[in-house]
């Protein structure tokens, strides 16, 4: 599903942000990517979304070869990947319903389908009652659930979560992680970049640890091994 082969990325002179990384993630896997800030996690995500080009190495996402991909095909790649961010990135001038519907509008889904799918998705993340609320009226956990609904509404085969619990308290963090686990069980490949040691340790999933641009460990079922 996600294949990186000997991928390096250098921004300018100096040490590369990512150095000769190879990762294979199968369909339906749940993977944590951990490492301290500056380790190269963000670069890795940008490479997968083709926001950046690798200096060397090959990247395949859902069978698509990114290196040779034409610019106008990039939107199709991004439709394969649902994204969730630490700061939610909701549109504050729109209510919950419109935030989720927005994801469908921009990929030109017919209104009829939108009207059917958005309420169903909001029920799944437990926000069916709050569809008229604006993001500022919601708690952090609720906002992240809206963001999750938005990321998943177009049925992407891959979900990329960048520090999804970074702004949440432990209770809300666990709710979001449980949702991600559930989504994974329904068949979506889930990749979570995180600092949250407690969660990584407790969930016992595959953990890839990156340090200074290289992979220092890749455990099938592991915990947060990296120590300062």
């Amino acid at each position: 599903m996600i294949i990186l082969e000997n991928v390096s990325k250098s921004y300018s002179a100096g040490a590369p942000a990512i150095n000769d990384i190879s990762i294979h993630i199968e369909k339906g896997e749940f993977v944590f990517i951990v490492g301290d800030s500056g380790a190269g996690k963000s670069t890795l995500m940008k490479l997968m979304l083709k926001e950046l080009e690798p200096t060397t190495g090959k990247i395949y996402i859902n069978g698509k070869f990114l290196n040779k991909m034409k610019r106008r095909k990039v939107p199709m790649l991004r439709r394969d990947i649902g994204m969730v961010f630490q700061n939610f990135r909701l549109l504050n001038d729109r209510n919950v319903y419109d935030n989720v519907a927005f994801a469908q509008r921009v990929v030109e889904v017919p209104s009829k389908v939108i009207r059917r799918k958005v309420p169903a998705m909001l029920s799944m993340v437990g926000l069916a009652q709050k569809y008229k609320s604006y993001p500022r009226e919601l708690s952090g956990g609720e906002q992240q659930r809206v963001a999750l609904a938005r990321a998943l509404i177009n049925n992407p085969p891959i979900l990329l979560a960048d520090e999804p619990t970074g702004n949440l308290d432990p209770k809300n963090s666990w709710e979001i992680m449980n949702l991600l686990d559930e989504i994974n069980k329904r068949g979506t490949t889930v990749v979570v970049v995180t600092h949250n040691r407690e969660i990584v340790d407790a969930m016992q999933k595959r953990v890839i640890t990156i340090q200074k641009g290289i992979i220092v460990s890749d455990e099938r079922k592991g915990g947060y091994i990296y120590e300062n």
Partner: peptide
């Protein structure tokens, strides 16, 4: 800007 950034990530085409 934020809206456009999100649109790009969601796979909106350039034209859209």
């Amino acid at each position: 800007k934020e809206e456009i950034g999100i649109m790009k990530l969601m796979g909106a085409t350039d034209f859209f």
